[in-house]
């Protein structure tokens, strides 16, 4: 097994044409992902985390969205420029994706079994019977009771948690090298979320895949990720290993996110919200997009902030990062 990153995203830029002009939803995004690693991509709505995932999967809505620059290196190939026919062999096979809403990837008019079997036959060239056995094995792997019987169920016959498991089983059936999970547990109740996160952690270890976990929930990040990248208005503003980021956040936006959070067991007085709201991508200020809400900003922040090393394997895109050396 190689030691280099399995997925290496360099300066990825994704643009959308909107009625009110072009919008840069992902702006010079660089990140790599090692096998066996779970990387958390966090940020609030509209920060570009899902668009990043769709760019990697080459599933951007067309014709409005397009990759405008950068490279997505996967096993020596640049996914950003791969022809669609070759991308189709990778998507769902070597890189798969799960979504917040399982019905986005499950077809309501086919049985669960048919859908998994189809993926196995297409990508792994299995025969029908072997594929069916493998599909049942995958369902039992994700903790679905009576997997043989469930293969004949249609998605609507399953509960939300069960559908999520089926989608994970489907995403894993081809043993992908990379799985992108976009808010996989956001629509689920906490007790079911705990089951699914536990499942994902176990399967990741078993299959040895790399996971990019997109979430707005810092609790989920703390429990599942080794590294974290924080996004704001299309850019990564901070990246570090999970412990460092939670203990010593350097970017004022990350600091603000933590201070906004009510925590179980630690009843603080008033919460300290970040003032204001996320600016529109159509009207970003020059320089740092966070400057108007930032408690440390000054005139310098009107210049593009540098990607600064603030500690070992810890970067922040900021002119005035917090003092983190302890």
């Amino acid at each position: 097994m190689s030691t280099g990153p399995v997925l290496d995203i360099r300066e990825l830029t994704t643009r959308f044409d909107t009625r009110r002009g072009p919008v840069t939803a992902v702006d010079r995004f660089s990140l790599n992902l090692g096998s066996g690693e779970t990387l958390g991509l966090v940020g609030e709505s509209g920060c570009g985390k899902s668009v990043t995932a769709l760019s990697v999967m080459r599933l951007l809505p067309r014709p409005a969205g397009r990759i405008a620059g950068g490279r997505i290196l996967f096993k020596g190939k640049d996914l950003a420029s791969l022809p669609e026919s070759r991308m189709r062999r990778i998507r769902g096979n070597e890189i798969s994706m799960i979504f917040q809403e399982p019905m986005t990837s499950l077809n309501p008019v086919y049985t669960v079994g048919f859908q998994i079997v189809e993926a196995l036959r297409r990508h792994r060239r299995m025969h029908r019977r072997a594929a069916r056995e493998e599909a049942a094995r995958m369902l039992s792997l994700v903790g679905i009771p009576e997997p043989g019987a469930r293969l004949n169920d249609y998605p609507h016959q399953l509960s939300g948690g069960m559908r999520q498991r089926v989608m994970i089983a489907m995403a894993l059936s081809c043993r992908p090298a990379v799985m992108i999970a976009d808010e996989p547990t956001t629509a689920l109740d906490v007790t079911i979320q705990a089951q699914i996160l536990d499942l994902m952690n176990r399967l990741k270890a078993e299959i040895g895949m790399a996971v990019m976990l997109i979430t707005h929930d810092l609790g989920v990040v703390a429990e599942t990720c080794q590294r974290v990248a924080v996004m704001y208005t299309g850019r990564i503003v901070e990246a570090a290993d999970v412990r460092t980021l939670f203990r010593r956040p350097a970017h004022p936006y990350t600091v603000g996110l933590f201070q906004s959070l009510p925590q179980i067991g630690g009843r603080q007085g008033r919460l300290k919200p970040i003032p204001g709201a996320v600016p529109s991508l159509l009207r970003l200020p020059p320089g740092c997009a966070f400057q108007e809400r930032c408690f440390r900003s000054d005139g310098q922040c009107r210049q593009d902030p540098p990607w600064t090393a603030v500690g070992p394997e810890h970067w922040a895109r900021c002119w005035h990062p917090m003092e983190v050396s302890t």
């Binding site: 979320q193 705990a194 996160l197 989920v220 990040v221 703390a222 179980i264």
Partner: peptide, 8 residues
């Protein structure tokens, strides 16, 4: 116990 705690 199922609620994720934002502390690694």
């Amino acid at each position: 116990s199922a609620a994720p705690v934002p502390d690694p």
